[in-house]
């Protein structure tokens, strides 16, 4: 089975590098986009298995990216995990309502974050999650 591809959409280059290193070490291919407009283009050409999305982006809000993705047949079903510095009290519900599978506030805990990624990619079953905890 070929490695799964994750698209990170975030405007912070260092964060991209740090997170990509972690994800690659866990066996994922990583592509990135740094603004709302290129994000859609990259998503269409790369067809990632999962998108990690920041909410505060140049050239548009993260929610805008969400809307556009949902409007495109090829990206409609791609799971999205939101990773944002914004206050979860205000944004978590909105993100989940918009269709995100999880919301993490920066900085996330590595272990929890990776668990969520695995879950979103369907690599883990309910039972295994249950047994782990």
């Amino acid at each position: 089975m070929s490695e799964k591809k994750i698209l990170i959409i975030d405007d912070d280059q260092h964060l991209l590098l740090g997170l990509a290193t972690r994800l690659q070490a866990n066996g994922y291919a990583v592509v990135s986009a740094t603004d709302a407009i290129s994000a859609i283009a990259v998503a269409r050409t790369e067809a990632p298995d999962l998108v990690i999305l920041d909410l505060g982006l140049p050239a548009g809000d993260g929610f805008l990216v969400f809307e556009r993705m949902r409007g495109l047949t090829d990206l409609m079903a791609t799971p999205v995990i939101v990773l944002s510095a914004r206050d979860p009290a205000k944004n978590k519900k909105r993100a989940l309502d918009a269709g995100a599978v999880a919301f993490f506030q920066k900085p996330p805990n590595n272990r929890e974050f990776l668990t969520a990624i695995r879950q979103a990619l369907g690599e883990t079953t309910a039972l295994s999650t249950f047994l782990k905890t």
Binding site: D12, H14, L15, T21, R22, A25, G56, A85, P107
Partner: peptide, 27 residues
């Protein structure tokens, strides 16, 4: 304060990733 905390979180996240990456032997 909300702005400050937001702005602090982004670099903090980068530091967190780099530190844990190195600490976990990824490099």
């Amino acid at each position: 304060l909300s702005h400050v905390s937001h702005e602090l979180r982004t670099p903090l996240t980068a530091i967190y990733f780099f530190t844990t990456n190195v600490l976990d032997g990824l490099l």
